[in-house]
Design a protein around this nucleic acid. Structure first.
Length: 883
DNA sequence: GAGTTTGAAACT
DNA sequence: CAGTTTCAAACTC
């Protein structure tokens, strides 16, 4: 055909490489896959240059009836690898599909790349090949039909890889081709096994390939899974897959010049991803798919899904695990986020295409180990896709998810400790900004929460995020199997956690529950009611307590032997412990403090001075600051209430106020304002907390915290105003909240009154409050719920919302808002701290911010679930209920 | 990793 | 309800 000059972009190197590749390709039998891509065809049509070789190679393309391939791997150029990588990364056409996936972006990039480069390549290489191999290949090189092009395109990667590595090595083009095909198949298979996000798809792809394809594509990897030495790991396969996707898309004639431009832009934007990035991208893709599954279903073509799946190289166990964690990672990493966005945009750009041939059935990653978690999840009703996926993963991911839902901090810690393999994930978590984390987490949270009640998880305190990170670490190290599922070593007790009993776990649990619905209820219960004000408007700090209390004799409730301590909750009257020194709250303190608090609240109510007090509290700039701070640090993924690092005395003491702080709350409150500010999400902050505890904390809160607050205030100019503003912004404006605030501040007295007093008017109070509000969705919610039930409708409403399927994000956001409101004394309107908040959130928790906004609009007030009850009465009831 | 400590759970 | 035993986790070395 026309060997007209190639586009300027084509470089001589490309030509040379193409030539070489072509030579090899020339030797290919008819079955050899054509290297040309649909784009090339498209381009060829547009451009004066036309494919020289007829489509002699007919390789089946996924979902696309592929006409015989016209071009023998003209583009197979070792040099091309660069482009390849790009493709490989970008390779998967976002075809309409999962925008979330990097693949989408990659695909876009790939498309653009294809358009830009591949065209050149193909045309040029074709030309070259034509020139060189005019005789032999000319017939083949005929401009192939789009399908043919597609096929080629699909195979391009393979071709490239194979050509570059195999073909070059192997003079026998046919063999190389076969190898490529086989490798591709094998890879798909591997992918299927390994990943399983889209198990079906890969298989389908294979099917299609096999059916359509004249020559099966095989990656360098052979059936045995051996990879060609030359090929970068799995990239070849990935490239193939991606190319296939691209080819499909290309085949879809939808891609127009405008698209190309857009694609080009995307491509440009797309930075060259390293392997790691790629892996992340893939993970993200899968993850994204899970999250956006719905979207994908509606809009995305199955191909994309397949692509995503297929694109994923066979994952090693490590990868799988990381993949499991990918959810988190995905959400976390900003880069990932960008990718997602890109993919989304890409998706939007690419309407669903006709490739739907490939039915996409998103199934749980089958490859991922099925464990109790997964089982439970399975049994669980109404899990979101993401949840299912996660649960199915049952590995760290599952655990992570749960823990994440529980406490961001825990999550972080846990991630670090337990997921060395997925260091990236962990890192992302840590580094990830709350916002990022929020979304994914949030999505997952709800389901996770449900999971919490799973027999296995629900039963354990850990599930509530109450387990200290250290414990988690320990457990992971000792109790978690490779999959990350909790596994105890109870070999003599027939522990249901043992995987061996998976089959029986459900049944057993059901049976048990049938007898005792509360059998698997969490051990830690919120005793908020105890302190709840009669009017119910005031939310006393909910106190998490162990249902049955501990019986510690020697540990003085200072070690994990103590369940209360382990759960980061104070001991209550229910405890029979001796010499209780529980930093979270001593047994002795429990009753007295509760009564005191309740009395105070009552008095306030009676006096009707709640508001005044609130104002006073608000007046305290520190207090306000603290509030603000808290808001900022509101963990997107609601932290587990009680989560604290055991062994961190500081936390403990801090908690001594009995407010179980969420990990993040720790941040906000902890001394570490400064610290936390810089890295609010820094998991280390908790760890860093000085063990000395209260004193330090108090000091910090009063001192550093003050300073910090001041600084903050600067940004938020009138401090109060800022708070007020926030409050107003908050959809849940509960007068009660304000009351609550005051109440809480006073309530603190009972808990850690001394400390609070240390910093009178300082953020100490706020901190306490923040704890409560920030408390993990689970516990905190519970608290809120309880207290609110007695109290305000709005509160209860909020609680309900939170408790409901409301995404974590919302919950979280709501929580902070609430707290804010509570803090605002007069509801003065002040210049919004947007700037500051945004800055913080944008950097660390954009999602949260968004979530908050969302909440504002969406959260309605709800009627109290339970009538207001006298604090004492409620208390009694609670105890009973707990017991 | 082995041994000790501890407290929950089960049982009496 | 109290006491005892069993068990596994937590802890120490």
């Amino acid at each position: 055909m026309d060997s007209s000059p190639q586009s300027a972009s084509n470089t001589t190197t490309t030509t040379a490489a193409a030539t070489t590749a072509i030579v090899a390709a020339a030797t290919f039998s008819d079955s050899s896959p054509v290297q040309e891509s649909p784009f090339s065809n498209y381009i060829s049509n547009l451009s004066p240059i036309k494919p020289v070789k007829a489509a002699h190679v007919a390789q089946g393309f996924l979902g696309v009836s592929s006409p015989p391939l016209v071009f023998t791997s003209p583009r197979i150029i070792p040099h091309r690898e660069t482009s390849f990588f790009q493709r490989s990364q970008l390779a998967q056409v976002p075809s309409a599909e999962t925008p979330e996936n990097d693949g989408g972006r990659n695909n876009l990039a790939g498309l653009s790349d294809d358009i830009g480069k591949s065209v050149n390549y193909s045309t040029k290489s074709i030309t070259d090949s034509h020139q060189e191999n005019a005789g032999e290949n000319s017939a083949r090189d005929q401009p192939g039909s789009s399908s043919g092009c597609v096929d080629e395109y699909l195979y391009d990667p393979v071709d490239v890889d194979c050509a570059s590595s195999v073909n070059l090595v192997n003079p026998n083009a046919k063999q190389s081709n076969d190898v490529l095909q086989s490798s591709a198949l094998s890879e798909h298979a591997e992918q299927d096994q390994g990943h399983s996000m889209f198990e079906i798809k890969p298989a389908q792809v294979e099917k299609e390939q096999s059916s359509n394809k004249q020559s099966p594509i095989k990656c360098p990897k052979d059936e045995s899974g051996m990879t060609m030495g030359h090929f970068p790991e799995k990239k070849q396969c990935d490239v193939l897959e991606s190319q296939v996707v691209r080819a499909q898309e290309d085949y879809n004639e939808n891609v127009g010049a405008s698209l190309q431009g857009a694609l080009d832009n995307i491509v440009q934007r797309e930075p060259e991803a390293s392997h790691l990035q790629r892996g992340l991208s893939r993970r993200c893709l899968q993850f994204g798919e899970t999250r956006w599954k719905t979207v994908v279903n509606s809009t995305c073509s199955p191909n994309l899904m397949n692509n995503v799946t297929s694109s994923r190289s066979p994952a090693s166990a490590m990868e799988l695990e990381s993949l499991d964690g990918s959810l988190v990672d995905l959400s976390d990493s900003s880069s990932k986020k960008q990718t997602v966005n890109l993919s989304r945009s890409a998706t939007s750009m690419f309407p669903p295409r006709g490739n739907e041939k490939l039915p996409i059935t998103v199934s749980k990653p089958s490859g991922i180990g099925l464990h109790l978690n997964s089982i439970v999840n399975t049994s669980a009703v109404g899990h979101t896709t993401a949840t299912n996926i996660e649960s199915s993963n049952c590995s760290e991911s599952s655990n992570l998810v749960e823990k994440i839902a529980i406490t961001p901090k825990d999550r972080m810690l846990e991630t670090k400790a337990s997921l060395p393999a997925s260091a990236a994930t962990a890192d992302s978590l840590h580094n990830a900004e709350p916002s990022n984390m929020l979304q994914p987490v949030g999505h997952q949270t709800t389901p996770l929460n449900k999971r919490k009640f799973n027999p296995e998880h629900g039963y354990n305190v850990e599930e509530f995020g109450q387990v200290s990170p250290a414990k988690k670490k320990r457990k992971k190290s000792s109790s978690l199997d490779g999959d990350g599922c909790k596994r105890c070593n109870c070999k003599r007790t027939k522990c249901l956690k043992l995987p061996e009993y998976e089959d029986t776990v459900i049944e057993t649990r059901q049976q048990i529950e049938s007898r005792n619905p509360n059998a698997f209820a969490p051990k830690i219960v919120q005793h908020v009611a105890e302190f709840a004000a009669e009017d119910g408007n005031q939310l006393m700090p909910s106190l998490a307590r162990h249902k049955r209390g501990c019986h510690c004799k020697r540990s003085m409730c200072l070690k994990k032997y103590c369940e209360c301590y382990q759960a980061n909750v104070g001991c209550s009257s229910d405890c029979r412990c001796e010499g209780c020194k529980n930093v979270y709250g001593r047994k002795e303190e429990y009753g007295s403090t509760g009564e005191i608090a309740s009395n105070i609240v009552r008095k306030q109510i009676l006096d009707g001075r709640i508001d005044d007090k609130l104002e006073m509290a608000a007046t305290n700039s520190d207090f306000l600051h603290a509030e603000l701070y808290d808001l900022r640090h509101l963990t997107p993924s609601t932290p587990s209430i009680q989560h604290s690092d055991h062994g961190k005395d500081a936390q403990v003491q801090f908690n001594s106020s009995r407010y179980v702080p969420s990990p993040e709350s720790d941040f906000s409150i902890l001394p570490s304002y400064a610290k936390s500010i810089s890295s609010p999400s820094n998991s280390h902050s908790n760890n860093m907390i000085p063990e000395k505890g209260e004193e330090i904390l108090d000091i910090d809160t009063c001192g550093q915290g003050m300073d910090y607050n001041v600084a903050m205030m600067d940004q938020f100019s009138p401090r109060h105003d800022a708070l007020v503003d926030i409050c107003e912004l908050t959809p849940l404006q509960n007068p009660s909240m304000t009351q609550t605030t005051s109440a809480s501040s006073k309530t603190r007295d009972w808990t850690g009154g001394s400390r609070l007093q240390l910093c009178p008017g300082s953020g100490c109070f706020s901190s306490g409050r923040s704890f409560r509000w920030r408390s993990s969705p689970i516990t905190p919610l519970t608290r809120l719920h309880e207290s609110k039930n007695q109290g305000h409708d709005t509160d209860s409403g909020l609680y309900d919302i939170l408790e409901d399927d409301t995404p974590e994000i919302l919950k979280e956001a709501s929580t902070p808002i609430t707290s804010v409101k509570a803090s605002s004394p007069n509801k003065k309107r002040v210049s919004p701290p947007h700037k500051h908040i945004q800055g913080l959130w944008s950097s660390s928790s954009g999602g949260l911010r968004s979530g908050r906004k969302f909440i504002l609009k969406a959260v309605p007030s709800f009627p109290p679930l339970t009538p207001c009850i006298d604090s004492k009465d409620s208390r009694t009831e609670k105890k009973d209920s707990n017991k």
